[in-house]
């Protein structure tokens, strides 16, 4: 276990986001307790990524409030770079730095942003690479790794910053099916260690087994939320039922 920071809570209140005329988030309220794992599910285009990206301000909300560990993120005078060091983000397309080795990917921000010494940064990076099972690939470049391996490095890179919160945006959607399991099992382990996690995913088995809570979004609003087994096992709203039946039985008519 290499994360020493206490897990953060997340509060999202009446969040609105528009692109031009189009309102993509229409008043979102979500609370995440420290150490809780929340899965965001919903059809493509429902605003899941936008919501996740608002939490670390890759997108600027139009109105509403977001707090991470009690600190307002939406305050216009927030030190955004400092806030982001506490929030790890894992992207669908991995986004590893292609000109750096695996080890350098995991040390560069530690050294340049957290001002850790190179030796300390490497030690922490190797611990996290060990954790994702890729310490032996430390000297490789990202293009020499499979998609699943790249995503595991991306997780190690984020963890090397000792985040209090991890955001995952469809981390397994770009992977070959046989590598999905490795990534999910690392996320599962992270959840068990008590990390606060918000995960956008289409992996319903993962959501059911790992998430404390599932939030179903459609058309920029939260349609239904609750304990994972309830939302997935016994959805109340028709839109949730329709979505789940499509995801769980893609070939059925």
């Amino acid at each position: 276990m290499t994360s020493h920071s206490a897990p953060a809570s997340v509060t999202i209140k009446d969040l609105h986001k528009s692109y031009g005329e189009v309102e993509v988030l229409k008043g979102i309220d979500i609370n995440v307790s420290p150490g809780e794992v929340v899965c965001l599910i919903g059809p493509s285009g429902s605003g899941k990524s936008t919501l996740l990206r608002c939490v670390n301000l890759l997108e600027t909300p139009n109105s509403g409030l977001i707090e991470v560990a009690g600190h307002s993120v939406t305050d216009p005078d927030v030190n955004i770079d400092k806030m982001r060091t506490n929030v790890g983000m894992v992207f669908q397309q991995f986004n590893l730095f292609s000109h750096l080795t695996v080890l350098e990917n995991c040390t560069v921000a530690q050294i340049k942003v957290l001002k850790r010494s190179k030796a300390e940064a490497q030690k922490i990076a190797l611990e996290n690479l060990e954790k994702v099972g890729l310490a032996d690939k430390a000297g490789r470049h990202p293009d020499q790794l499979s998609g699943g391996q790249q995503q595991r490095v991306a997780i190690a890179r984020a963890l090397s910053m000792d985040p209090q919160l991890m955001l995952f945006d469809e981390p397994t959607s770009a992977l070959d099916p046989e590598t999905v399991g490795d990534v999910l099992s690392i996320m599962r382990q992270l959840a068990a260690e008590g990390m606060t996690m918000i995960v956008v995913t289409h992996e319903m088995a993962f959501a059911r087994d790992v998430a404390d809570r599932v939030v179903f979004m459609d058309g920029g609003v939260v349609v239904e939320e609750g304990p994972a087994h309830e939302v997935i096992g016994n959805p109340q709203h028709q839109r949730t039922q329709l979505f789940l039946s499509r995801v769980l039985n893609p070939t059925a008519q």
Binding site: R84, T85, G88, M89, N95, F97, K112, V113
Partner: peptide
């Protein structure tokens, strides 16, 4: 985006 989300300005 990856660089920014790691806290780089």
């Amino acid at each position: 985006e990856a660089a920014r989300s790691l806290g780089m300005g």
